[in-house]
């Protein structure tokens, strides 16, 4: 059975929502060290969160900062040490330097995340040889390209729902508007705030920019199932607390049962700026291709 995973940025969020529908949880927000309560920066909270999840019988993965510069590396190395001490199940990184460091220094289980830019089978083969256990193919890849990666002995995780990352920067541009919004770090990014230009809507979140629309593969899950992938991710890092639980329940039912029109309508209602398929069908990421529901 495919693993259903999501991400939880803080202990507060973990305490207030049910993660029951999920098999595994990525802890921490990879887009900003200063995010209020970020589990990658607060080791006491991290310890409690891991304990909670283990009691629930969930697998625990720790994420790491997505775009580390030299000065970030010592902090990441400390986080890795802590993660190993707390006996987590895997560490996620999107930086080849960090991935290589974890494999060479600790030979610990690594998941290469979506910003790792894994576009080709040549790179999948290289990561397989390095011992990387799981990859997320580049978000820009269509299903036909992801399918080719199954030839290698590496687990594959893809996003099935939520706002996909579209870019990452060296700083938080949203802070340029702190006077306009009347709010500063670390509160401003927790508001419902969007960049909008004509047809295009984006969601700023820390150093990352996310899609304004929710990627939704609810109608098309069989197409992904045919690939026999290893994990489906619901991207909920920037969402309000209830979103994670509601979407998780709907996809759990979808995986164990079938298409339920009311659930699909619910997913659409949760997406303020609509749904899309990302790049799975070789179209612009913000386009939605109708499926079972016409």
């Amino acid at each position: 059975m495919v693993e259903l995973v999501t991400n939880v940025p803080t202990l507060e969020v973990l305490s207030k929502c049910s993660v029951e529908p999920y098999d595994a949880i990525y802890l921490g927000n990879p887009y900003c060290w200063d995010y209020d309560g970020n589990l990658i920066s607060n080791f006491n909270d991290l310890e409690v969160a891991i304990e909670m999840l283990k009691e629930m019988g969930k697998k625990v993965y720790i994420t790491t900062f997505a775009a580390p510069r030299n000065a970030d590396l010592p902090k990441i190395f400390k986080l890795i040490d802590k993660a190993l001490e707390l006996n987590v199940d895997a560490i996620e990184s999107t930086n080849y330097g960090v991935i290589n460091y974890i494999k060479k220094e600790y030979d610990f289980r690594v998941h290469a995340g979506g910003f790792t830019n894994i576009y080709t089978s040549a790179t999948v083969e290289l990561l397989e040889n390095l011992g990387v256990e799981r990859i997320m193919p580049a978000y820009e890849l269509p299903i036909e390209d992801i399918e080719k990666f199954k030839e290698y002995d590496v687990e594959i995780e893809v996003v099935v729902h939520g706002k996909i990352p579209l870019g990452i920067s060296h700083n938080c541009f949203l802070l340029e508007f702190k006077d306009d919004v009347g709010m500063d770090c670390p509160h401003i990014c927790k508001q419902e705030i969007w960049y909008k230009s004509d047809d295009l809507v984006l969601k700023p979140f820390g150093n990352a920019t996310l899609s304004g629309k929710d990627l939704c593969m609810y109608e098309h899950i069989e197409k992904l199932n045919e690939l026999n992938l290893d994990a489906y991710r619901i991207e909920s890092i920037s969402e309000r607390i209830s979103y994670r639980e509601m979407v998780g329940k709907i996809y759990r039912k979808r995986l164990e049962g079938g298409f339920i029109k009311e659930d699909f309508e619910k997913l659409k209602s949760l997406a303020k700026y609509g749904i899309c398929n990302g790049f799975y069908f070789n179209k612009a990421g913000q386009i939605y291709v109708g499926g079972l529901d016409g």
């Binding site: 775009a67 820009e140 579209l166 870019g167 920067s169 541009f173 984006l202 899609s211 990421g285 913000q286």
Partner: peptide, 16 residues
């Protein structure tokens, strides 16, 4: 650029 170069797909999200 707004983002780190090579780690941006805002353009293809808009049109492709």
């Amino acid at each position: 650029d707004f983002t780190y170069l090579g780690k941006c797909w805002m353009s293809s999200y808009k049109a492709l």
